[in-house]
Design a protein around this nucleic acid. Structure first.
Length: 465
RNA sequence: GGCGGCGUAGCCAAGUGGCUAAGGCAGUGGUCUGCAAAACCAUUAUUCAGCGGUUCAAAUCCGCUCGCCGCCUCCA
């Protein structure tokens, strides 16, 4: 079955074929580690995780590289303004290196909480400075660079296909519409490859280079790292939709100028998470929700968020609200309950999976990762006229391979604590004696301890809330 | 100013030319239950922002209008 993916480069769905049969090189733009990731950022990483899992489910080997941007880039406009890492360090009274390490750990923890599979290779910008310098040297040799008072710049006018990805008319862009102009640049779209450390200022992060002491520009790291680790397997490059116009456009320009070869066949971009009536979530908008402050602190399973993102397509903006999270929470609980009952009814009986449902599920996934429809297939499966062991085996495969929702978690839940078991015993006795008042009182007591009591045909069921 | 996206039931949302407009959440009715909860079954858009056009046929294509949003600083 063909895997069809939307390629930003062509703005259409294309059949995906890896450069080397059976193997895929995947590069996903990672975070700048100067603060926590917000759940809008995390939506993109969940989308990329689904992409990777679908590639694997299609039987492909995936070499996945994700970078950590730990060099401080700039808060202000392109190539001006304050350095984000240094600013974070100042804010928290720690070194830039400490800040990077701390937020890198926090980021990886968030990914783990969302069941996002780790990349094959993690790489840090600060570990590939020599590669970045050497790439800039190549560009310099080929005549794509020029020097200004504050750095080495890429001359976008010398790269004919500049802006092919963004489809923006270079001349129509209004530099300075929102920010101060950099008057030293030849073209408004030119960007820094290497920035000089300011005179008389000791930066925490700076390196020697053929052009003087300084630090690399933002875009060069992704080019250097993808070439270093993926080499001739430049299949798919992902990121947020905001990267199309500047970051990825510049990556393509500098990479293709340097190598003369095509830099990545497929470019895929995740849409934003919106909040408060369609506004994007951003640090600057003051609606900064993290996994910690929105889910963990409210005792909501982070996988509820993972599940919530599956309800909209990755190329459409997703509406975030308390209601949508509550709906996802209810839905996930129901789903886990259904799987739990299947486990109980089948008593662990092994079974082959249903091939036609597998094909149907894969078919929806292979149509540009249509998760809403893939979820509909799961619902259809649960209602289908199939033996329970087959249903269970099939849904467990879907979950393990792609969904990553731990649908049989209830079954695997921790055993009940002794005090709860004792209350259950007392309540059973009261019920046998038809002492309903005592039975109801004990039910309330168990519930107050954070457990749900359900009386069914097979007896009493007590599960953690 | 330039580029782009969106508007489908109370909510989230799929579908982008042709069978009865997916699915979830919430709601409603029922079964079960000492009562509840859970579960299970059933049910919920003659209609896809509005108007006009193309077509044998449009939520899906075209035009206009209204509303919302993103990018062109850093940003997922």
């Amino acid at each position: 079955m063909d895997l069809v993916l939307f390629n930003t480069r062509s703005r259409r769905k294309e059949t995906f074929t890896p450069l080397q049969a059976g193997k895929v090189g995947l590069y996903t733009c990672g975070p700048t580690v100067y603060n926590y990731a917000h759940i809008g950022n995390l939506r993109t990483y969940v989308f990329e995780d689904i992409l990777k899992r679908v590639l694997l489910y299609n039987g492909l080997q995936v070499k996945h590289v994700m970078n950590i941007t730990d060099v401080g880039h700039l808060t202000g406009d392109r190539d001006m303004g304050e350095d984000k890492m240094e600013q974070g360090a100042k804010r928290e009274g720690r070194s830039a290196w400490d800040i990077a390490a701390y937020y890198t750990t926090a980021f990886k923890e968030d990914l783990a909480r969302l069941n996002i599979i780790d990349p094959t290779i993690w790489c840090k910008a600060t570990d590939t400075i020599p590669e970045q310098i050497s790439l800039i040297e190549t560009l310099e040799t080929k005549g794509y660079t020029y020097r200004t008072g504050d750095g080495i710049y890429f001359d976008t006018a010398r790269f004919e296909q500049y802006g092919q990805l963004s489809r923006q008319d270079r001349d129509a862009l209004q530099e300075g519409a929102r920010v101060e102009k950099n008057l030293d640049k030849r073209n408004s779209t030119d960007f820094a490859l290497w920035k000089f450390s300011p005179e008389n200022v000791q930066r925490q992060m700076e390196w020697d280079s053929p052009w003087g002491r300084g630090f690399p520009g933002w875009h060069i790291e992704c080019s250097a790292m993808s070439m270093k680790y993926l080499g001739d397997q430049l299949d798919i490059h992902c990121g947020g939709t905001d990267h199309i116009d500047v970051h990825h456009t510049n990556e393509i320009a500098q990479s293709e100028a340097a190598t003369g070869k095509r830099f990545f066949n497929f470019w895929m971009h995740g849409e934003f998470l919106n909040i408060q009536g369609g506004k994007k979530m951003a640090k600057s908008e003051g609606n900064f929700l993290t996994l910690q402050n929105t889910f963990i602190d409210n005792d909501i399973d982070p996988l509820v968020y993972r599940y919530a993102t599956f309800h909209s397509h990755y190329r459409k903006p997703m509406e975030y609200s308390d209601d949508s999270i509550a709906a996802a929470g209810n839905g996930l609980r129901t789903l886990r309950g259904q799987v739990t009952r299947l486990v109980e009814r089948t008593g662990g009986e092994k079974s082959p999976i249903d091939d036609s449902f597998r094909t149907k599920f894969l078919c929806r996934l292979n149509d540009d990762l249509n998760m809403p429809q893939a979820l509909a297939v799961v619902q259809e499966l649960l209602k289908a006229d199939l033996p329970d062991p087959v249903k269970l085996a099939t849904i467990q495969e879907f979950d393990a391979a792609v969904l990553g929702l731990e649908l049989d978690r209830e079954v695997a839940a921790d055993p009940l604590p002794p005090e709860i078991l004792e209350l259950i015993g007392l309540r059973k006795q009261a019920r046998e004696e038809k002492n309903w008042a005592e039975s109801d009182r004990l039910r309330d007591e168990i519930q107050d301890l954070g457990y749900v009591v359900q009386d069914g045909k097979a007896g009493m069921r007590v599960i953690k809330k």
